[in-house]
Design a binder for these strands. Structure first.
Lengths: 333, 333
DNA sequence: CTGTTAGCGCGTTCAT
DNA sequence: ATGAACGCGCTAACAG
């Protein structure tokens, strides 16, 4: 049952039927309702393929995500889906685990001609990648990561880091360690410098000296957190508190501390960033960031762009300290 | 950049270019490789709309996922992506949080033929949904959940449950509690009966009596686990060990135990199912299930179906007990 | 307001 | 083995 059937049944031309159904401007109310009735009765639905072939838009938006199985990315994608789907748009998912996948994506541009916009989730684009993606000639939006050149929705990583470290300072800690997450596959990942700089700034502002031994840099991940904590613990003067760039890293640190026979927070305090769902379950103090909402807001930007409407193209969402039971004042030893 | 461009650049006709790209029968190897080279160089990709309209495939497979932001689903999707993408297929992502979303999906998608196959991740299809989908003749595959009527990849939930409970039994526990996860939006979720039945069977097989007070049923989630543990703790004879249907629920239970001033595993043992990445970080004993691989295997079934090749249509992957530090023999009080 | 006419990009018969 | 031509179902100019 095609548009033609509807047109014939309603005794009008294809064009008129089309206009009536897409409620375009310029159709007599009487004809329109007639067409609609027939369409309804024949339970007609437009063929999206044909419609898009003729009309131009695909009705899809491509998502480029590093690791769909990590909480943060999953939550952002969920947020995107929750507003894009109701808006009638379909999501195309592309995962770029490592540098190779990523290169593949930007070289091949598999999403080419398949989407009206692409949302990059959680990582910044390199110069070369920007040039490539520009080739697609579609809107680009960044969700969960700054991107300067494109509309974005993110948090202020420096502020988040500040909230974390100042909480530790406020509790009275003077020797604060940091587990810094670096990612070989994503050099220049923007949150890292922000979160690290915040540490240095806060410590300096408190009039403390920066001890380089207190900073351990390792790839992102829980096991890295555990390993980093090992190093910190073996120092002559171990820290009394540790600031990790994310909750999963923080939980790795907690495991090491406990295995060493020490207690959290009595012996050592630990704080992370994210407010991962499991942070609440493990009583981890952290700085909450709205992952789902970053996705939802980014989706709204996409909608605005596609509808050529107004919208804030640069959104920074607030973060918030969530105090639980992994932080406490240092032992007044 | 269309097929026409490729054809011209390669000095062949549209028809030949088309045939070469879809590796149809009857193209000189030399011409074919030439066309392929040009296509590669121009990073050409077919327009799915035009292709489908002209009678071909859509080149897409739809994923229906309840909660993309939960570890298990994210991991399965990741597995799917890792084999579908290299095969040149695009993924359409649909999240169906509640029953309503789900209904909407099954009414819409089949009618619009946006995909050549649909993979249902982690839940069983209702009769009505099956009829809808059947109607439109798309392949259906179930990943991470049994589905009898369709090809599937899953684990044996009863076996996983057995491994968990028997571990507790083996350690010497005689009063074992169970936190059973039910989902109002997904009645008949198959893993629940399997995991629950395993508990009853194992306990009975050990010659112990089933105390209904030891079983608490609540919706899935960490907070539920915490609440359930509360109830268990308030019993006159609290259990010495607890079996949860998933790691997140188990971690909720652990929190409650610790907040009550008790220790894990000295006072109470806790075991979950999944081997969530954070289980390793929290030293939680669990039964590991291969989430990523379930997705990958399901994807391979999809490929076989689309290429009308042979393949195992019913795959059950093994689970494995992972002993960590949340379980120990009961106190010989 | 409505009907006619072109394509949109590609798969698929036919011929050659 | 390859090329020419037609049509998939619809939208977007144009006329009228």
């Amino acid at each position: 049952v095609t548009l033609r059937d509807v047109a014939e049944q309603a005794g009008v031309s294809l064009a008129t039927a089309s206009r009536a159904l897409s409620d375009a401007y310029g159709v007599a109310p009487s004809t329109r309702s007639r067409v609609l009735a027939v369409a309804e009765q024949l339970s007609y639905v437009v063929s999206p393929e044909a419609s898009r072939l003729a009309g131009g838009r695909t009705g899809r938006v491509a998502l480029v995500v590093p690791h769909i199985d990590r909480w943060f990315f999953g939550a952002v994608v969920s947020g995107l889906e929750s507003v894009l789907h109701p808006a009638g748009l379909d999501l195309l998912l592309y995962q770029t685990d490592d540098l190779e996948d990523r290169r593949g994506f930007f070289d091949q541009l598999p999403a080419r001609r398949k989407a009206d916009a692409v949302v990059v989730v959680g990582f910044p684009l390199e110069q070369r990648e920007r040039e490539r993606i520009e080739l697609m000639g579609v809107h680009v939006v960044s969700a969960g990561g700054q991107a300067e050149e494109y509309p974005y929705v993110c948090i202020d990583d420096a502020e988040a880091g500040r909230q974390a470290v100042e909480h530790l300072l406020f509790l009275g800690h003077r020797r604060i360690g940091m587990v810094e997450s670096v990612d070989p596959d994503h050099p220049g990942w923007p949150e890292v410098p922000g979160r690290s700089a915040a540490y240095r700034a806060a410590v300096a502002a408190a009039g403390l000296e920066l001890d380089p031994d207190l900073v351990v840099s390792l790839p992102w991940g829980g096991e890295s957190g555990a390993e980093a904590m090992q190093q910190l613990l073996s120092l002559r003067h171990p820290p009394t508190a540790v600031y990790a760039h994310s909750d999963e890293v923080a939980l790795g640190a907690v495991r090491t501390i406990r295995r060493a026979g020490l207690r959290v927070p009595e012996d050592i305090s630990v704080i992370g960033i994210d407010d991962h769902p499991l942070a609440a379950l493990t009583d981890l103090t952290t700085v909450q960031q709205p992952a789902h909402e970053q996705g939802a807001r980014a989706a709204r930007i996409v909608l605005a762009l596609l509808g050529s409407q107004q919208a804030d193209l640069h959104v920074t969402l607030p973060t918030r300290l969530v105090v639980r039971r992994s932080t406490a004042p240092p032992r007044s030893s």
